[in-house]
Computed example of a mutant assay.
Amino acid sequence: MKIELLKTFLEVSRTLHFRLASESLFITQSAVSARIKLLEDELGVLLFDRRQKHLKLTPSGHRLIKHANEMIFMWQKAKQDVGVSEQQTTQLVIGSMMSIWDVILQTWLQKIHRNMADISLLTSTYSPLELRKSVLNGVLDIAFLFEPPFVEELITEKVATVPLHLVSTEPNLDIATQNLNDYVMVDYGESVNSLHMREFKNAPPAKHFMSQPRVALEYILEAGGCAYLPRQLAAEHIRSNKLYLIEDAPVYSREIYAIYLAKSHKATVINQAIQYFPEVRF
């Protein structure tokens, strides 16, 4: 099964339109249609329901999405690993939740680039459950998440504690004057959410709920409002007076952990890379 077929399937599943998929892939619409038909013939199932006016994924199509993403990632991993072997470099496959990439991992990757010239990086984003499974299965060398699993085969190391500050697009606010009517609730997990609910029990319900800190940041910068954001993510906007700390608001925190296989043959490289986190608390 060719990887191009899976890539075409994913693009059609994203756009639900053969023409839009063809424009994104820089191939003809007929080529897209032919690839999907070939993939359906190989699998022996229909992936899209073409009977309605708008294209729709079948149950088989929905199930294929996860497998297609995994197969494409594994192919990229294999291509890179084979390619770098001739350059005497070591491939380090890293996975993380999206919100952790935004907060600390971008800077960490730059430090690895500057200090570990013999490392080739391959990164991806997963859910917490997928991160645990992918490390245990050897797909990922190292993963970053908020709540590590307690599994005997895994080593867990705390690499950072991320402070979460209440910030607003309006200056000179405090909890007494900030009624949180324009508050955006960001999901930082049950431990932070329960603290927030208890301490703000008399506040009106949040107007918006968002799972990613960066999405909430971009939203309030454009529309106005307030949200709990990682200090690292908000720092630049605080310095430029686009965001303002609500000084008397409680400060929460999330700990970030690295997990990797205890018997990983890359344990030495992983430990060296982890050392480039400057300190546990930012």
Rank of each mutant, 00 (worst) to 15 (best):
K2Q: 09
F9R: 02
F9C: 04
T15H: 07
L20F: 09
A21C: 06
S22F: 02
S22I: 00
S24H: 06
L25R: 05
F26H: 14
A31M: 02
S33H: 06
S33A: 13
A34G: 05
R35Y: 07
R35W: 00
K37L: 13
D41N: 15
L43R: 13
L46F: 05
F48L: 09
R51P: 01
T58P: 00
T58V: 04
G61F: 07
H62V: 14
R63C: 11
R63L: 15
I65R: 14
I65H: 05
A68C: 05
E70H: 06
E70W: 03
Q76H: 12
D81C: 05
S85R: 13
E86H: 10
E86L: 13
T89C: 10
Q91R: 08
S99R: 08
S99A: 10
I100S: 02
Q110G: 11
K111E: 12
H113C: 07
R114S: 13
R114V: 07
A117F: 08
I119H: 00
S120Y: 02
L121E: 07
T123W: 02
T123H: 11
T125A: 05
Y126Q: 15
L131K: 00
R132N: 07
K133G: 03
L140G: 03
L140H: 03
I142E: 08
F146A: 13
F150R: 15
T156G: 08
P163N: 09
L164Q: 08
S168A: 14
A176F: 01
T177M: 01
Y183G: 03
Y183A: 04
V184F: 05
E190V: 12
S191R: 11
S191D: 13
V192H: 10
L195E: 12
M197P: 00
R198P: 00
R198H: 11
R198V: 08
E199C: 01
N202Q: 12
N202D: 14
M210R: 02
P213C: 05
P213V: 02
V215D: 12
V215R: 03
Y219H: 10
L229H: 03
L229A: 09
E236C: 06
L243C: 03
I246S: 14
E247L: 09
A249S: 10
P250K: 02
R254H: 01
A258L: 00
K263C: 02
A267Y: 02
A267E: 13
V269W: 13
Q272K: 14
A273Q: 07
Q275C: 12
F277W: 07
F277L: 05
F277N: 11
V280G: 13
R281A: 12
